[in-house]
Nucleic acid binder design. Structure first.
Length: 96
DNA sequence: GTTGAGCGTT
């Protein structure tokens, strides 16, 4: 099981390793990903980080939300579930 | 060579 966090407001230069390195000290990051445009390869300015425990995820969220990374203040929140079904929680209820 | 709230491609 793992907890996922959504990271927004990232600088265009922020990459997956930057996220992984930035969240690593808060817990064991099993997966990190900065969403880049599939066609241009440029960063979309947001990404996701997966932790092994919600405790690490919570600590990272409380510590990194509003923090500065790559020169820009980033936003950290509970990520939503891509697999339809779950959804809810985090940034705000929204259905798709 | 740009943009700035958000929730991702295999």
């Amino acid at each position: 099981m793992s907890k996922r966090l959504f990271c927004g407001g990232l600088a265009w230069a922020t990459t997956t390793e930057d996220l992984q390195e930035a969240f690593a000290p808060f817990g064991e990051v099993t997966d990190a990903k900065v969403v880049t445009d599939r066609e241009t390869g440029r960063s979309r300015g947001f990404g996701f980080v997966t932790f092994t425990t919600e405790e690490a995820a919570s600590t990272a969220r409380e510590s990194m939300d509003g923090a500065t990374l790559g020169g820009r203040t980033i936003r950290v929140d509970l990520a939503r579930e891509r697999q339809g079904g779950g959804g809810g929680g985090g940034g705000g209820g929204y259905r798709r």
